[in-house]
């Protein structure tokens, strides 16, 4: 590689970034660089395997903003996971805060960004995407040609697109739960309760073997169920979940563990419910 082939762009505005990226869509977007470094380590490349043209996202102020309106919370894609946790401590829904806190270690979270996390793939089981899935989070993808919003857990930027922000509806959840096991198997869930019943359940499982599983049909099967849940309702839900997890490549132990995690959240609902 010759010196003049190497280019590290450092755009200072979103418009500048989008313009640059449209001119050079093969350049690598570089946010915190932690997933890029991890990928290199997995491939036993030391130190990193970097293409000759990089676009640094760290100086783009629009990507570093956190804004809140009564209806939603917007987190810029370039906000580090550490900053999202500390700034949003009283604002972030608990399920998302716990998901973010489960990523890496504090120093890794001081570098890694939320946008990088959503664009990095799901090798770890998808903690943050699963939390965003239960919160109905969306992401904005922008290119020089325009912008579009997609569900946060399906964020796959097309060529020339940049993930610019994550939007989370500000809703009240009376019960939230997040668990991530060493195997990477993850459960994220949130529920609205009212008058001793379960009004709404959002429920997502994630694992490296099966990606993300969220089923409206399954969630609706418990809609308006009285709390504590009747044994039939509970068993029906868990049985249905187990069937949906009958996926090639997912072993019976992992399946049983996922069902146990789901049971853990249903227990929490029972505790939260009647009061």
């Amino acid at each position: 590689m010759r010196d003049r082939d190497i280019k590290v762009y450092r755009p200072r505005s979103l418009n500048g970034l989008l313009r640059l990226y449209s001119l050079d869509p093969d350049a690598l977007l570089y946010a915190g660089g932690t997933a890029i470094a991890l990928r290199a380590a997995a491939g036993r490349e030391r130190p990193f395997r970097l293409p000759p043209r990089l676009i640094m996202l760290g100086n783009v102020p629009e990507l570093g903003r956190i804004t809140r309106t009564p209806r939603h919370l917007d987190i810029g894609a370039g906000v580090t996971l550490g900053r999202a946790l500390s700034t949003g401590r009283n604002v972030l829904p608990a399920v998302l805060a716990q998901a973010i806190a489960s990523v890496g270690t504090p120093p890794v979270r001081n570098l890694g960004t939320i946008g990088g996390n959503l664009c990095a793939g799901r090798e770890d089981g998808g903690a943050v995407p699963s939390a965003l899935a239960v919160l109905d989070g969306q992401v904005e993808l922008r290119s020089a040609a325009g912008a579009r919003w997609v569900r946060a857990w399906l964020a796959e930027p097309r060529r020339g697109e940049v993930l610019t922000r994550v939007r989370i509806p500000m809703e009240e959840w009376q019960a939230q739960g997040f668990r991530r096991l060493a195997s990477g198997l993850t459960l994220a869930a949130a529920a609205r309760l009212g008058r001793g019943a379960l009004e709404t359940l959002h429920f997502c499982l994630a694992g490296s073997d099966f990606g993300l599983l969220r089923s409206r049909e399954l969630e609706d099967s418990l809609k308006n169920a009285r709390l504590p849940l009747a044994p039939r309702a509970r068993q029906g839900f868990l049985r249905e979940l187990e069937e949906r997890l009958t996926i090639p490549g997912l072993g019976s132990y992992a399946r049983a563990t996922a069902v146990r995690l789901a049971g853990w959240f249903l227990d929490r609902l029972d505790e939260a419910g009647p009061g």
Binding site: G33, A37, L38, P47, L50, T105, P106, P107, N110, L111
Partner: peptide, 29 residues
């Protein structure tokens, strides 16, 4: 470890503790 797991290489980078083994030089400008 050289891959962000052990914390032996921590430095304060713009006032935050980060792993110097994960940072390429160009990111330190």
């Amino acid at each position: 470890c050289g891959q962000g797991e052990c914390g032996s290489c921590l430095v304060l980078f713009n006032q935050k503790a980060v792993n110097a083994c994960l940072l390429p030089l160009f990111a330190a400008a």
